[in-house]
């Protein structure tokens, strides 16, 4: 169930190369699961910008986004106190019940934020998540401390080797064992590599260029084993077993 509402920007700060963290204040009652997203109207742009939720509480939503175009550029310049028109409660989110004791959480770049809210939810259920994050370079790394503060194991890879393990998340995953399920969000090529490497079941959060974000326009359709599915409405989280590459 989505809802359109007004939200106030409480903070908006750069936390890595081109990456910003924004805290919004307003109604969060329509958000039900980690892995859901919000759709933000930005002045002078026709379409809203879909951004995944990092974490939320009774009155605030934290999002982390990368400046990739003109819309997110405007977003990055918004000052505290700005009022935004936002749709919340979008997407299906991750199913925390599907994992057991030791779920593996894999985030790539700005696919990392939903892993944070998910990590908190899993800990609340008494689970001990293991977190693997992949970035291009040291200047891109964010939220390492935040994850560590949750008391979980955190492994980081960078493609150029400037921080953590040199290589990709899959180079770290190969060295890990004992996990029973995985959750992941990140670039499509990373998702595919993870999908091919890990044998256990999992859930993958996909990205596709969206029109409406509410399932109306059929702009973000992917093909799955169960037929065409809309990433915004039937996803963005899909079961490993549903996907076709």
């Amino acid at each position: 169930m989505y809802k359109k509402n007004k939200y106030t920007v409480r903070s908006n700060k750069q936390i890595a190369n081109l990456v910003y963290e924004m805290v919004l204040e307003g109604d969060t009652s329509y958000i039900t699961k980690p892995g859901q997203f919000i759709n933000i109207e930005i002045d002078k742009f026709y379409l809203r910008r879909p951004i995944s939720i990092c974490t939320y509480d009774e009155s605030t939503i934290t999002i982390i986004y990368k400046v990739v175009g003109e819309g997110t550029e405007v977003l990055s310049n918004l000052k505290e106190g700005t009022i935004l028109d936002i749709l919340t409660g979008l997407g299906n989110g991750f199913d925390t019940r599907r994992s057991k004791e030791r779920p593996l959480l894999i985030g790539g770049g700005v696919g990392t934020p939903p892993m944070y809210g998910l990590c908190k939810a899993l800990i609340k259920e008494g689970k001990k998540p293991v977190v693997v994050l992949g970035f291009n370079s040291k200047s891109d790394v964010f939220y390492e401390k935040e994850f560590k503060d949750l008391g979980v194991e955190v492994y980081i890879s960078t493609v150029d080797g400037s921080y953590g393990t040199k290589g990709f998340v899959t180079d770290i995953i190969r060295t890990l064992n004992g996990y029973d399920f995985y959750y992941t969000c990140g670039p499509m090529n990373m998702l595919k590599a993870v999908y091919e490497l890990i044998e256990t079941s999992g859930e993958l959060s996909l990205e596709e260029r969206m029109g409406c974000g509410i399932g109306a326009c059929m702009g973000c359709t992917i093909n799955t084993k169960n037929g065409p599915r809309r990433v915004c409405y039937n996803g963005p989280v899909f079961k490993k077993e549903e996907l076709v590459w």
Partner: peptide, 23 residues
Amino acid sequence: RFGNPTPRIAECTAGLINSVGLQ
């Protein structure tokens, strides 16, 4: 019909282009 390959959406000034293809 599955429709057309993605991306199917492009934003424009005061509008958008869609190429859903009758999914």
